[in-house]
């Protein structure tokens, strides 16, 4: 790791005044420090923000608000989330390891960079790091994207993000010029030539908290994840599903979000359309799973992710609907 200065400001405003392209915020550090150790980032200053950020899980009539400094372990163990936002608790519980869950924060989890092995290798000057070509597109890409791979085919590594998206969460973001609320569906955005990152967060901005609206009690949700081993791995593919079946057995609400298959958490709109307003049965679920895979563009090494994500979608929906 290259040398840097360290600041521990007394207030958020002070912290925001320090932040910039060469001064990065440090909270849990589990992604930032690995990027720095790999020499992919070399900030001149780290600004300790963990003590300044909101932390904890609060519930009111409007829904649930989770502070950005809340650890994954706290989210995993929270009884309210387990009961009413099951998929989120499950996602936190299968992310990384107990140690990392004790350290990593919600904010950092949303902002973590991809694990693509070209992106993480300092010898590969890939497109996402400002280069001209994505090395994975023609290279080794078994872990890479099925969807949305225009400039970069890395996949978004977060387990929590698909679950939060499935619950229609929004982030409260603060910069030197004030606060804004950004739905996570807009917050995550495919990287572009001008913005080589997976979010619309601007330099110098911080995520303060994430809120989910409240859902009727009969709403059910599930998070399923497949990995190369049974723990301590990022998703090869994952599915977060939130559904509510109305009084007349019709699917009144559904959100299906895929993880590990696109540079950002990927909402399966097609599958949702197949399901909404219908009565669930095996055939409908099969059709929804097929629709979830529509538009996929498999690469040389990742075609297996198609049957994999269909199986996950099918299983999640079966478990919630049948």
């Amino acid at each position: 790791m290259r040398a840097f200065a360290y600041s521990r400001p007394a207030s958020l405003d002070e912290a925001l005044a320090l932040l910039g392209a060469s001064a990065r915020p440090l909270a849990g550090g589990t992604d930032l420090l690995t990027l720095m150790k790999a020499d992919l980032l070399a900030p001149e200053r780290l600004v300790a923000i963990a003590p300044l950020l909101p932390s904890g899980i609060a519930r009111d009539a409007e829904g649930v608000t989770i502070g950005a400094a809340t650890t994954l372990a706290d989210i995993e163990r929270d009884p309210t989330l387990a009961q009413r936002f099951t998929a989120l608790g499950q996602a936190a519980g299968v992310a990384a390891t107990p140690q990392l869950r004790n350290m990593a924060t919600l904010g950092g989890n949303l902002l973590q960079r991809p694990r693509c092995w070209y992106f993480r290798n300092r010898l590969a000057q890939c497109w996402l790091k400002g280069g001209t070509a994505c090395h994975a597109r023609e290279g080794e890409n078994r872990q890479h994207a099925l969807f949305g791979g225009s400039g970069c085919v890395a996949v978004h590594p977060s387990d929590l993000a698909p679950a939060l998206l499935a619950f229609g969460a929004s982030a409260r973001v603060r910069g030197a010029h004030g606060e804004r609320i950004v739905p996570l569906e807009e917050f995550f955005s495919l990287p572009t030539g001008e913005r080589r990152s997976e979010t619309r967060l601007r330099d110098g901005e911080l995520v303060l908290q994430v809120s989910m609206p409240s859902y009727p009690e009969e709403t059910r949700s599930l998070y399923l994840k497949e990995m190369d081993r049974r723990a301590f791995a990022f998703a090869l593919a994952s599915v977060a599903a939130v559904v509510r079946v109305s009084a007349r057995q019709r699917i009144g609400h559904v959100r299906l979000v895929l993880g590990g298959v696109a540079p950002i958490p990927w909402r399966a709109h097609g599958a949702e359309r197949v399901l909404l307003g219908e009565e669930a049965d095996e055939r409908l679920i099969e059709a929804a799973a097929d629709a979830a895979a529509e538009g996929a563009v498999p690469l040389k090494g990742n075609a297996f992710k198609l049957p994999l994500l269909k199986a996950l979608a099918r299983r999640a929906l079966r478990s919630l609907l049948l």
Partner: peptide, 25 residues
């Protein structure tokens, strides 16, 4: 790099990877 657990210590009673924490923090 936080990939193995050989550096696990407890911080305020919780297991953490000491390699991904700054001493100053």
């Amino acid at each position: 790099m936080g990939n193995c657990g050989a550096c696990t210590v407890l911080l305020d009673g919780r297991a953490v990877y000491a390699c991904l924490l700054l001493a100053i923090d």
